[in-house]
Amino acid sequence: MFGKLLSDISGLWAKYGTTYLQGIGNTLILAVTATLIGCVIGFLCGILQTIPCGKNDSVIKRVFLRIIRIIIRAYVELFRGTPMILQAVFIFYGLPYFFNVNFSSIWTVSILVVSINTGAYMAESVRGGIMSIDPGQFEGAKAIGMNHWQTMLYIILPQTLRNIMPQIGNNYIINVKDTSVMFIIGFSDFFAAHKMVAGAVFKYFPSAFIEMGGYLCMTLLASFLLRKLEKKLAGKSNYELVTTDQLVMTAGTYNYPDHQDGSPFGEDKE
């Protein structure tokens, strides 16, 4: 029984191996690109949603921020609340209906759909990540004169990124699997390879077996790499003290505004 399955699988692989591999390649490219773009969308929404506005700000700024928040909220609810397979159909057939667009490549639509779908989820993850950062980090940055963008870019988002790495991993793995719905608009991903092969030779189960193994390999590899990345983002667990000699070598001299004698380490001669 297993012998038959094995021979079927090897037969399929011998004949359609490149089709499967191409499907895997397309799936990975789509999942990686869309997850990255989705992250950028998510972080952008996170920054825009947290712009502080107090009563000292002008009315225009407050109204503007209000509108931005409503738009982001609507975007998140719409794309989180509808199936991606329908979103694909809507955008692929809907945009040419209203606008004079002509999708020259199926890639454009696929990346667009999966990106904005991921972005909607990421926007909420990033918002949660930002909320989890100690308010003292914002205050520390404000106190040295950083504005909102600088605070976000250099202080808050790097820490947020580290905290929501598991969520990004989640989204990526979901994308590897869920990009399979893009067959609806004719994208030739790994699952589309199965449909094509099985349709041609009527070996549904052996082909599905290959698919299962293929998807599992892709997601396991992703999990492994994400763990590595998380470790790297956590930084080194130890540090080395720098001796004063080394510092003098690299520091050069700096003149304190009110002092004329310049060596940074000539402090003790009063």
Binding site: D134, G136, Q137, E139, G140, A141, K142, A143, I144, G145, M146, N147, Y154, I155, P158, Q159, R162, Y239
Partner: peptide, 22 residues
């Protein structure tokens, strides 16, 4: 206010060092 804050330093009770930087 950012330009003003840059000229007035602040040291907090809970330090508020940036955790992501050395």
């Amino acid at each position: 206010s950012s330009a003003y804050r840059a000229k007035v330093g602040m040291v907090f009770q809970s330090f508020n060092l940036f955790n992501n930087l050395t």
